[in-house]
Design a protein around this nucleic acid. Structure first.
Length: 480
RNA sequence: GGCGGCAUAGCCAAGUGGCCUAAGGCGACUGAUUGCAAAUCAGUUAUUCCUCGGUUCAAAUCCGAGUGCCGCCUCCA
């Protein structure tokens, strides 16, 4: 089966063909760094990572860009009510917006690392690309797709009526939007659906000089058009983001980029459905906007969260609950146990199980699932199927030859090249030493048949989230 | 008001006309194993896919109505 993706623009599943054979250029809308990203954000960011790894498995060379929005925006035109989020957050905390951006960027990068996302080739900041944005704005003015307005003509708007495909991505019609009557009347605009490319406001903290005035700052959408163009060129293979970005953000990006370059902007649009919490939306008032730290504080490793977020199909709403976190953790623990068993197993002399055949079938199912619009649920099911087959085929205990063990581990390595969940978190050396000491002490007690003492130590270890297992091959322990 | 998505076991979640008397995971229960556990193995855990009506030889899958949840139309992954 060829690699296929659902394309938001056509609302169909299409065979994926990069413009340049063997190479893929993709852009992902990253976070606005005014507050710490939450688990819902990471569903979208981890989707980008999964996509990258699936493309790489297909032998494609990927150039990935994920931006950081560190310039605040408000599209609400009424200055009394509209406020820039970055500046609002900064004022509330008594910081300047640049400090907030730096702090949140660090948190974001730390979270992404803990979640094992491969670093994209480029992670550009909007504030570093003002010149590139102005360049596109100039092009749009020259082509008559944008106009100057407002005091001293310092504000610049994109004229939506000049772009006939506006609405093509989202299915929205400009006249239907008007009927919504939720767009404030702004006398500066020729049409209510026109959107800002550049605004001027002397009160703004994050602002730049340009030929349009001293106190300018960019509109929300222009940064992505500018950064995508700089790092990937005029036409991208894939552009992704959360489902909320389809309109207006991505619609506006298309309008700007295509009007400026005269070329198609994106060949495949992919959008991730929102993560729900407890069957509903997450919100500050419900107290269910969880961060990676919240998840870790509840005794989970980041890889458990990674698995939870990645194994569900990206186009269906996923329900995050603490039960579902426990579920993901349990699943990973079973995989962990399988890997440990394989690595410590004494190999059998002769093959008792048809491992080759199992692996062949599993690999075929795994690839077919991934190729089919990244059906991660089916792909992981195939891996668990292999685990069950291998474990049950040999009866009560595993009977595998050395070669078979290596083949299975190699396949699990392939699985892990995509999902990256099999390596447990490393323990601090002191902690590891302390655990080893307790485990050894317990062993001595057991050898003396002092089970009271042995169980007492086991309880102590459990308090450190350590489970000991007495096996035929000896004692082993693991963190849970 | 306009546009779009989803609804499958206690929970999470695939499947979108016949191979479904419905994957996979978690959890629970029974047994084997164990000093006891853990892990593992054996077995049990949806005659049914939100509700009602329809199309079809055949529907979880298609159509219609309803209910619930989610997203967009304003910043949001």
């Amino acid at each position: 089966m060829p690699l296929q993706f659902y394309n938001t623009a056509t609302r169909k599943i299409e065979v994926f063909k990069p413009a340049e054979s063997g190479r893929v250029k993709m852009y992902h809308c990253g976070p606005t760094v005014y507050r710490r990203p939450h688990v819902g954000n990471y569903r979208a960011f981890l989707f980008a990572d999964l996509l990258r790894r699936v493309l790489e498995r297909r032998g494609l060379r990927v150039t990935q860009v994920m931006n950081l929005t560190d310039v605040g925006h408000f599209t609400q035109e009424d200055e009394d009510h509209g406020e820039d989020r970055m500046e609002m957050e900064a004022r509330n905390r008594g910081l300047d917006p640049w400090q907030v951006a730096r702090e949140i960027t660090n948190m974001f990068e730390g979270d992404m690392k803990r979640l094992r996302a491969k670093p994209p080739e480029h992670r550009p900041r909007a504030s570093d690309h003002i010149a590139e944005m102005l360049e596109i704005i100039e092009l749009l003015l020259k082509r008559g797709a944008a106009y100057r307005s407002g005091p001293e003509n310092a504000n610049i708007y994109y004229e939506v009526s000049r772009f006939e495909n506006y609405g093509g991505l989202s299915g929205n019609r400009v006249d239907a939007l008007e009927a919504g009557a939720r767009i404030d009347i702004n006398p500066e605009k020729k049409h209510p659906a026109d959107f800002a490319l550049w605004k001027s406001d002397s009160k703004h903290i994050m602002k730049w000089k340009s030929r349009f005035g001293e106190h300018g700052f960019p509109g929300w959408h222009i940064e992505c058009s500018a950064m995508a163009r700089k790092y990937l060129g005029d036409t991208l293979d894939i552009h992704t983001g959360g489902e909320d970005l389809i309109f207006p953000h991505h619609e506006c990006e298309i309008a700007q980029s295509e009007a400026a370059t005269g070329k198609p902007f994106v060949n495949y649009w992919m959008h991730v459905k929102f993560l729900q919490v407890d069957g509903g939306k997450m919100s500050k008032s419900l107290g269910n906007v969880y961060s990676v730290d919240d998840v870790v504080a509840r005794g989970f490793e980041p890889r458990h969260l990674r698995f939870l977020l990645q194994r569900a199909h990206y186009r269906t709403p996923l329900n995050f609950t603490w039960d579902s976190m426990r579920d993901a953790k349990g699943a990973i623990e079973r995989l962990d146990a399988f890997v440990v068993d394989l690595k410590t197993l004494r190999p059998a002399a002769a093959a008792a199980v048809a491992v080759d055949e199992m692996l062949q079938k599993t690999r075929a199912a795994f690839d077919a699932a991934l190729d089919d619009d990244m059906n991660a649920a089916e792909a992981t099911a195939a891996v668990f199927g292999l685990l069950n087959n291998v474990r049950t085929a040999g009866g009560a205990s595993l009977k595998l030859t050395k070669e078979q063990i290596e083949l299975i581990l190699a396949f699990l390595g392939e699985f892990d090249a995509i999902f990256d969940v099999l390596t447990p978190e490393e323990l601090a050396p002191e902690e590891r030493a302390e655990i080893d000491r307790l485990v050894a002490e317990r062993q001595t007690a057991r050898q003396n048949r002092d089970f009271a003492r042995s169980d007492e130590i086991r309880t102590k270890l459990a308090a450190r989230r350590v489970v000991v297992e007495d096996t035929k091959e000896g004692v082993r322990w693991r963190r849970v």
